[in-house]
Amino acid sequence: MQPNPTLDQLQILVTVAETGSFSAAGRKLNRAQSVISYAIANLEAQLGLKLFERDGTREPQLTGIGRAMLEDAQRMVGVLQRIRSRVDGYHQGLEAEVALAVDVALPSPVLVRVLKAFEAQFPTVTLRLHIGTLGLIPDLVVNGQADLGIGGLLGDVDVHLVRIGFMSMVPAAAPHHPLALLPKPVALEDLREHTQLVVTDQSERTRGHDYGVFAYRTWRLTDMRTKHILMREGLGWGGLPRWLIAEDLAKGRLVELDLEPFKEVSSPMFAMHRSDRSPKPAAAWLVEQFKRELGSFNEFEPNEMPEEEPKLYNEPGPVG
């Protein structure tokens, strides 16, 4: 059986291809040119293949099979680099995995930008992502299923909070919905007569309690996306994040309701972790990244919000 190429030989192959010469590869790897040439010659002998054309050329040129082998070598060297990065990260206290729980109310462009940056910043850290609503986010943090939660605060929860921004909830309905056709502002007695679509808490935190529910008749849903679809079809009214329905409002698929009981509510969003656990490097980086991205997404920075803004889910507002 022929000996397998070593990782050192493959790294030399990649370096020669990247630098364009044996001498340049030697300088980059801090080795003599003769050592580089010898390693490539040994690799070619082991494989029984000619990887570089040397005759009649000023610098070695990859052969056809050499280019194919280079792709394989680059993958192997990439794996080696990830192994080294993971080991270095472990020695520096970097977690192997981050479990992240995110409220669906968080603007999806913010989530995507943060996760793209996370992938680039921590390529060796595995991500476990939970998407939920209402009390499910703090519950996942408290019971240890999530290292970090991003969302509003529902009731009293023993977690450490960092305010990262705010989220605006807007009462809305389809343009042909009866509430959209009434004189403005719509009185509470009129509001109560029309079905309100309400997202229910997937946790036990608010069982038996309603927040921001005004109608006598409600349809209870388990997710905000379904609520959004039903509202566009005129099957009820309710509150939805402004970022989620901005295009619908602009194109007339939904209209913002002018209601006597409440208007748009800007409510704080938090990063949260257990009080008895400090976030490790990747989770701590996520907190700051969410704060930065949500701050730029909002109309103004989180620290410029009024001090007495309504608290998400804790006080009456268009949460339903």
Rank of each mutant, 00 (worst) to 15 (best):
G20M: 02
W219Y: 13
L191G: 10
G208E: 05
E53S: 08
E193N: 12
L153R: 11
R274H: 01
V79M: 11
A250Q: 07
T222G: 15
V125C: 00
D72Q: 14
V87I: 10
N143W: 09
Q145D: 14
M169Y: 11
P60F: 06
P3K: 03
S23N: 12
V199Y: 04
F270Y: 12
L259N: 08
M269W: 05
L161R: 10
L154V: 15
F297E: 00
R217S: 13
P241K: 00
K311N: 13
S37G: 09
L127K: 01
V213H: 03
V77G: 01
L294Y: 07
V125F: 04
V16A: 08
A180M: 05
A180I: 01
E18Y: 04
N143M: 05
A284I: 04
Q33G: 07
L254Y: 01
G135H: 04
K280D: 00
A187T: 05
S108R: 13
N30R: 11
V186G: 09
E59K: 15
E44H: 13
R27Y: 08
M169T: 10
K50H: 15
H228R: 02
A174D: 07
R75T: 04
E247W: 00
D201V: 01
D72K: 15
Q74A: 12
I12S: 09
P5A: 10
M305F: 10
E71L: 14
S266I: 15
L154M: 11
